[in-house]
Write a protein that binds this DNA or RNA. Structure first.
Lengths: 188, 188
DNA sequence: GGATTCCTTTTACATTTGTTAAATAATCAC
DNA sequence: GTGATTATTTAACAAATGTAAAAGGAATCC
């Protein structure tokens, strides 16, 4: 749990009262490689903090497995479209390594917002950061070629390449695995 | 200003105290067609509410004008990556019709957050909605073909097609104008 | 540790999209 | 209104990406 509160502190200082209010909402999970954290079709009621491991959000388009995003240790992973709209998500969350996850119960969290404005502020800041990252990702998809996106990924997060199968990276970049293979062959 | 407070009320009820605190931060602007609301290179210090008209966020990639997003009357337009990170933005905001805009002074707004948790909540909700829309947009770019994206736009927001030049819509869809023209020729 | 399964690359060909340039259509300024 | 400007479409060719199938490598499971 320490990792989680260190993550929180990097956004917003909390008093011990607030920490005590948050703690009961958090439960630790251990998952084996490739296990699902959240299945398709469920409404998202948890915010997941990755203590150890990697996770991805994915879904199926015409039967093809598509990765929307990756998250690594020290960050959160959430199906925001489901969490904020309260509707079932067509996306699933899966861990790609043996992982340790802290699940934060969202309905309980949202109730705390009325009593603890600093908790509301904390999560506002967490999601503002996620928002910015999503805008930057959008930019990359909208205006850069597949090769540019691949090279940018290589620069910004080489860890992705080491820890995540290329078949997942391909759809994350918005291309097929064959196309990614070709791009890699050229830049070698 | 009424339109703005109606927009606020659709997210969060405010007392008259809170409204009175917000009002001095809001200033109305009138812009002629194609005028710039915010130039490239400036740090975003305003949240813009569109009372009347349309606006777009755009920038230049290799000298080519690229549209990141459109916003219509009754919604806000913000360069979030600049507003939340406090860094200069390479993007500009331009109106595409004669428009009436309400500028909300962001540094002043953020100071109100300490005194008025409901104002903080209001903007949390506004940006959560923007976050969700951005995730959905990302999905569309990552997994759908240009033709699918064009048709989806036609269904969801046919107004775009009526009010916005195709050259801007093309880069918004992540394709060239020639390619968009071809897609339109086929589906006719 | 050998067989099996899964991951990645390669090949060949089809399709889509980009690029450049020109033609046509629509809009704007005076 | 008319000429000039801007927007959109079309054409021809080049480059990038998709699809399907096969082959080579790597990892995994008794």
């Amino acid at each position: 749990m320490n990792e989680l509160f260190a993550f929180f502190a990097s956004f917003q200082e909390l008093s011990s009262t607030e920490k005590k209010a948050l703690a009961p909402l958090c439960s630790e999970l251990k998952l084996k490689k490739n296990e699902e954290l959240q299945p398709i079709g469920h409404t998202c009621r948890n915010i997941y903090f990755i203590k150890k491991g990697v996770a991805r959000i994915y879904y199926y388009k015409d039967g093809v497995d598509i990765t929307e995003s990756f998250s690594f240790e020290g960050s959160v992973i959430v199906r925001v479209e489901s969490l904020f709209l309260g509707v079932p998500s067509q996306k699933a969350i899966q861990v790609l390594e043996e992982s340790e996850i802290v699940a934060i119960h969202a309905p309980g969290l949202f109730r705390l917002y009325d009593t603890f404005p600093l908790i509301e502020r904390l999560f506002r800041k967490i999601f503002e950061k996620g928002y910015v990252e999503t805008v930057q990702r959008l930019e990359s998809l909208q205006f850069h070629t597949a090769e540019e996106r691949y090279k940018a990924l290589l620069n910004e997060n080489a860890d992705v390449l080491r820890r995540i199968p290329l078949k997942y990276i391909a759809s994350y970049l918005g291309i097929t695995q064959v196309s990614l293979s070709r791009i890699r062959a050229v830049s070698r």
